[in-house]
């Protein structure tokens, strides 16, 4: 019996990537969790003196109003993760549902769906965010809804293509001639075969959502003060970046670390989830 063997090196390298991604992401999750129980200073505490450099009493220094930067960064971690998770929840659920429907629909419905998705994708996230904010008000919730809606189109389009590809496989026809009902074809064959790709893509979308929230906050379309978003911290530090650069360093570094971490996790997941890269014994 010839049993094809995959090389052992590949999965191990992948797990290294996965761990490399979990380290920065895990640290940021830890920061966010701690912020629920403890902060060095309350966010509205301006006792620290303006633009103090990092030191014993303020580990990362203070901003131009004298507020502690570490406390802001910790709250910012929470907001970044919330916006990533919230947007992925909205975009994932709506996107996968629409994509599945379009993938299974007849040609006419599918064409209409695709046209709508193309319009939605062409629509800038920023414009969408401004519309949502105009309809409601500038808040973290509005920003998350806007980012999630923009993500829906991308996820739906991917899901639709993945579904079409799986449906063209002979094992779907074989399942149908085996008497398997459509709902069971979806849960038994379609979803298991598309979710690894979807999970990887949603992880990448998580990183993009974090960036999008930072951009919206930078423009004043995100969570209002005193809630500290990394994007708003960057915007506030912008004016003083030449005299006191540390105000921009911490949120900037964490933003990059989180996005890189999440992207590495996505990369690592890609092959960990694929049984053809695994050996069963």
């Amino acid at each position: 019996m010839t049993v094809k063997r995959t090389t052992r090196a590949a999965p191990r390298r992948r797990s290294v990537i996965l761990i490399a991604g979990c380290v920065p992401a895990g640290l940021i999750v830890a920061l966010a969790l701690v912020s629920f129980f403890w902060l060095p200073y309350p966010l509205d505490d301006t006792s620290g003196g303006r633009l103090s450099p990092p030191g014993a009493s303020h580990l990362l220094g203070t901003d131009k109003l004298g507020r502690d930067l570490l406390s802001q960064v910790m709250i910012g971690a929470r907001i970044a993760l919330e916006s990533g998770a919230g947007a992925v929840a909205i975009g994932g659920v709506l996107g996968v549902a629409t994509g599945l429907a379009a993938g299974f629909a007849n040609r006419w419905v599918d064409d209409t769906f695709s046209a709508l998705l193309d319009v939605l994708i062409a629509f800038p996230t920023l414009l969408l965010a401004m519309l949502v904010v105009a309809a409601q008000s500038a808040s973290l919730g509005s920003a998350i809804v806007a980012i999630g809606l923009a993500m829906t189109a991308v996820v739906a389009r991917l899901t639709r293509i993945l579904v079409k590809r799986v449906l063209a496989q002979d094992y779907i026809t074989a399942a149908r001639t085996s008497g398997t009902s459509w709902p069971r074809v979806i849960t038994g064959h379609v979803l298991p075969n598309i979710w690894p790709t979807l999970v990887v893509n949603l992880a990448l979308q998580f990183g993009l959502a974090v960036l999008a929230e930072a951009s919206l906050s930078f423009l004043g379309l995100g969570a209002p003060p005193p809630n500290a978003s990394w994007g708003r911290m960057l915007q506030e530090a912008q004016a003083t970046v030449s005299t006191a650069p540390y105000g921009a360093v911490a949120p900037g570094v964490l933003l990059v670390a989180l996005v890189v971490g999440v992207n590495l996790i996505a990369d690592g997941l890609r092959d960990t989830l694929d049984p053809t890269r695994r050996r069963s014994s």
Binding site: D170, Y171, A174, S178, P192, N193
Partner: peptide, 28 residues
Amino acid sequence: QSVFQDPYSSLDPRQRVRRIVSEPLRSL
């Protein structure tokens, strides 16, 4: 029951052979 041409596309790559072979029994 049916058999198809391409032996690479006719078996779900994410299922173990036992599950693949038992599908008609479960579905029917």
